[in-house]
């Protein structure tokens, strides 16, 4: 390992520690965020009641249990909030200080967001466990190949969310309300990602379209893979789709970042 490689590693480790410290300092706020993402669990109760008189589509009560608990877990593990940080940093000029540091600001944000995951998981775990006990467990895929795919699929879901937020956050270089635009994205996400209802239950036509969109790649697809509703061919196609969206949105983010920095420099920050 070269000296510069070690240097970068220690910087990343320092960022990780900083992120963990920040997350614990703002734990009450983090708890509210965790609570705000318990929506799938309320959906669970709701759809469970609706499925009392028989399955809806190919989901029975137990199917809904599995789906929404998995959705809750995937949502926790793929969360990021770089759009709000970046929006504020660009507007207030805080970004200038970040640009002076020996680490790329995007890496800084990636580490801050990732390092909150352990605490976030710890806060969400009791909620998840309580629901698990109340519903009598979930069925996840028993296919070892699929289980092995869960980790990369989750990582891709996280990355899709991250670069999307990065791309929208970069709009703050030109707009004053970039974070408000993210609300629009989030609105579409809640409806189309399979957050409130599995997309496979959508009316024919809408279902096919929704399942091609990045929202589904970031939530619905990992969930369906986890609970064993996909064949190997479908899983491979889904990962391909995740990669396509990651590259497309990542390219947009990279472009927005590069052009944005030029605009940022131009107004003298």
């Amino acid at each position: 390992m070269s000296a510069s490689g070690r240097g970068r590693r220690s910087k990343v480790a320092a960022l990780w520690r900083l992120g963990v410290a920040e997350a614990s300092a703002y734990r009450a706020s983090l708890l509210v965020w965790v609570l705000a993402t318990t929506l799938p669990l309320i959906s669970l109760v709701l759809w469970r009641a609706l499925a009392e008189s028989g399955p809806i589509g190919d989901y029975d009560q137990h199917g809904f249990d599995s789906y929404f608990i998995a959705a809750f877990v995937v949502r926790q593990l793929s969360a990021s909030w770089v759009v709000w940080d970046l929006d504020r940093q660009i507007r207030t000029g805080e970004l200038s200080a970040l640009l002076m540091r020996p680490v790329h600001p995007v890496l800084h944000h990636a580490m801050t967001n990732l390092s909150a995951l352990p605490l976030r998981t710890a806060l969400a775990a009791p909620v998840g466990l309580a629901v698990l006990l109340a519903t009598g467990g979930i069925s996840i895929t028993e296919d070892p190949a699929m289980l092995a795919l869960v980790v990369p699929v989750l990582a891709l879901a996280w990355a899709i969310n991250f670069v999307t937020q990065l791309a929208i956050g970069c709009l703050a270089f030109w707009l004053t309300k970039a974070a408000a635009l993210y609300d629009v994205w989030l609105g579409a996400y809640v409806v189309l990602a399979g957050y409130l209802v599995p997309t496979s239950l959508f009316p024919a036509g809408l279902a096919e379209v929704a399942r091609m969109l990045p929202f589904h790649a970031a939530l619905g697809f990992p969930v369906e893979l986890l609970i064993g509703r996909l064949s190997v061919a479908e899983a491979v196609a889904g990962i391909g789709l995740q990669l396509v969206w990651l590259v497309a949105l990542g390219a947009l983010a990279a472009l927005a970042w590069r052009w944005g920095l030029r605009a940022y420099g131009a107004f003298g920050a």
Binding site: A49, I56, G187, V191, V197
Partner: peptide, 25 residues
Amino acid sequence: VVGLAWSLGGLVPLIVALEHRDDVA
């Protein structure tokens, strides 16, 4: 308009439910 779209978007699960059932509870 965005607020209205948000609120109407929240209807999708109900539409899905009515797609599979004659009534919702």
